[in-house]
Amino acid sequence: MLTLPPAPQPAPKRQVFVGTALVSAAATMLVGGMLAIWSQFRADAPFRESPRRGPIKDWMPKDIVVPEVAANMMLIAFFVVCVMAQWAVWSAKRNDRQHAGMALGMTLLMGLATLNAQLFIWSQMGVDVRGGAFNSMFYAITGVMTFLVIAGLVYTAVATFRYLGRGNSDVPTLSAHALYWYFLTAAFSAVWFVVYVQK
């Protein structure tokens, strides 16, 4: 079936995979730095006793309402993206082009859904960035997250194009791509817990 005797391929050395792992590590520090600042700000906020609910940290302005459903949906979407990305790897390893393509499409779609959820959260909260420490921090941290998600979407798009344009042999890129989405999900889980749940 082959049209030419192939030169021996370089052995699979997982450069892209290891490289993506390093990107993820660096981005962990990015998100971690943001969360560190967030918790520092929050820890330094004074608290007061609420008559009904015990101590309340006066950290989040009281007129801000976090759309939790959207945040939760966003988290779910992240988990789904992960499985989709892994599905793409799985299919590609089995030379199942159609499923791999489909999984990549789904990855892109669900990735966009996370982005959409983030936009929805921003528009719903209507926070003024100049309003204070919480507001500034909220935008900073979600902005960084969004930036990382956009990078992930670009990654997915690239992986998709490459997959479509190439043969079946781009498994290394696909698995590295899945790794990045795993990282994003982990990072968002942390952000979700700290920013949307604990606040």
Binding site: P12, N72, M73, L75, I76, A77, F79, V80, C82, V83, M84, Q86, W87, W90, S91, K93, R94, N95, D96, Q98, H99, A103, M106, N168, S169, V171
Partner: peptide, 25 residues
């Protein structure tokens, strides 16, 4: 892995994803 021969297709990972989503919801 890339040079392994093709085997059947499967939608199960997809299904797993959906159910994981439902579980979290």
């Amino acid at each position: 892995a890339a040079s392994q021969k093709s085997v059947g297709r499967s939608l199960w990972p997809f299904g797993t994803a959906v159910s994981a989503g439902v579980t979290v919801v």
